[in-house]
Nucleic acid binder design. Structure first.
Lengths: 190, 190, 190, 190
DNA sequence: AATGAATGAGCCTTCATTCAT
DNA sequence: GATGAATGAAGGCTCATTCAT
């Protein structure tokens, strides 16, 4: 069983993995296709058999890892904006982030490089949709900021708290707690 | 007198200005010296009269704009960690950021690119020092996260709140309010 | 019977057709096997089942379409060089060209590319043989030029008179008339 | 004297010379910048100091060598279309071609490659302008063809008569004679 | 204080071709 | 009769940097 599917080599997947790893480590611009190819012990041309351009590699990774997030947004937009719901949204978002941590770390750290890589928009769009669900455009500015901050706190927990003591999961939960708190405050002022 | 000295710094300063502008706009890697030179209507070689390398331009900008921050850190480290002091620190930090907004926007968006540019460290060091002053290593994790969040909220206010209504200064103050709040909570739990 | 043989040549023939079309349209060098394969909705590798190299595709097209011309040359060389014969030769040549117009257009426009593609010689050889039949090596230079011109006028009529009014066949006949005229003059001076 | 102008090296000119030589010899597509650079014993990058793209090299050569032709067209368009004038035009055209023989040989042999190299148009435009001066749109088709033929005969004399005996200048004049003849016939029928 | 000329390394991409299946 | 996967070579181009002037 499965032998048939096996026929297709896993090169495509391996390219995506290595690419994400290197992109996250060194940035998109500074990672050359030569590097990716060498790491995989194939030629650069092989990459082009599987992907049309360098950007395409990134896009494919993005699309593969971004599914859960899309679902989350879709789900969120259909819900009533109760406090309990918002908390749940943050919980799920934190988990989704956790799933694709390297990708999000990459997105966060390469905003400049992504600015004109169509994909930049895709990312921004998602975050915006999420924000739209959390915050109330008519609320006082500080409360709106709280919502943005909540989201960023979750992002940051993926890669910015290395210097704090404690293991990764502990820190993720701490960040979630803070985010929930921020959103709660924003919600209650309303 | 003075005209002579004035002349001397003129081009150098213009290089820094244009470089920062372009770096912030397009990212460090994607901005070429050719581009900078063209914008200034001088040759690339002229840049090398004033700076030893591309990175040097960035460093010089950083150092020029970062002075107030260094003073802030120095001042902060000498203070007693009362709540009032921490609030003041945030206030001053927000102002310092405001002064050199494009630089900080750049720093935030080019973390990947900066990773192996000695300067990356410089930036991290400053933020760390500041964090060291604000937070208590022995506090519960969520409270430590609150302090990190506070700082990031201030950073974010420099470039991430474009989509919110309200003018820049309003938003800066809102962010400051949220940051103060976060730090206050962290402080009071202690 | 026959259906089997039919099938066999099918793809091969289609490759030749598409290849000629693209070669004529964009030139030999600028037409890639990928392009040909895509147009046919097969893989590049399939082309290699039918032909050994890219050049082989061109050669095969050439040989398929060039038969009538070879016969013409053979016939011509056996004839006595009367004026009437020469006129007939031009008439037949014009028709032969007409039959394989895209090929000749291609040959005309890709001389440079063909120079080191063994096939270039084949083409030149044919034209030369024809010229040998038409012109007299001992005639005054201008008359020899007339014969060359006659041939080129026929070639040109295949693709260069687009800008003139009139339909294709009309123009072909006009070119034939001019060619006949040129050869007649050359002949009569002798 | 002259020492100052001498400062500017002649590299730019040498690039143009070598490029034209190679383009004419092997065709545009098949000539790589590496080849040009090697022949000149400079690096590829040096070519890019002097020209923005490969096509730019070709364009610059074209523009340098094409001046006399432009003047000819301009002059021609201002003249009355007497037979004597047309003869004179052909004479001058033949000389202009002679001046830039390799370029025209190149143009003739690389039509396919030039088709999408903006420059192709430039060339066609010139020939068309010339044709517009020579031929009468209302004349019988064969006479129009004669004018086209006349021009092509001159072109051909630049590179296609190698196989005929006689030296280059002799052949050029023979071709001119034939061209004059063709145009004369066309003119007199009117 | 700045330029003109050039370099060496490297980049992304495309190509014709091969071969096991 | 054709495909999927891959290769080696090369192509055009850009970049940070150097240095004599």
């Amino acid at each position: 069983m499965g032998t048939h599917t096996q026929r297709r080599t896993d090169t495509r997947q391996r390219i995506q993995d290595v690419a994400l790893e290197l992109f996250a480590e060194q940035g998109y611009e500074k990672t050359s296709l030569r590097e990716i190819a060498e790491r995989l012990e194939v030629t650069k041309a092989a990459l082009y058999y599987h992907f049309k351009t360098k950007e395409d590699i990134l896009i494919s990774v993005f699309q593969d890892l971004t599914g859960p997030l899309d679902e989350l947004v879709a789900w969120g937009e259909a819900q009533e904006r109760t406090l309990e719901f918002k908390k749940e949204l943050l919980r799920r978002y934190s988990e989704a982030l956790n799933q694709a941590a390297p990708l999000f770390r990459f997105m966060q750290e390469n905003q400049a490089a992504l600015r004109d890589l169509k994909i930049g928009e895709l990312f921004k769009d998602r975050v915006h949709a999420l924000l739209g669900v959390l915050k109330d455009d008519t609320a006082p500015l500080p409360d709106q900021v709280r919502c943005v901050s909540a989201l960023f706190t979750l992002h940051a927990s993926m890669f910015l708290l290395k210097d704090l003591d404690g293991d990764f999961e502990e820190k993720r939960l701490a960040a979630l707690e803070v985010a929930v708190d921020l959103v709660t405050q924003a919600h209650q002022h309303a």
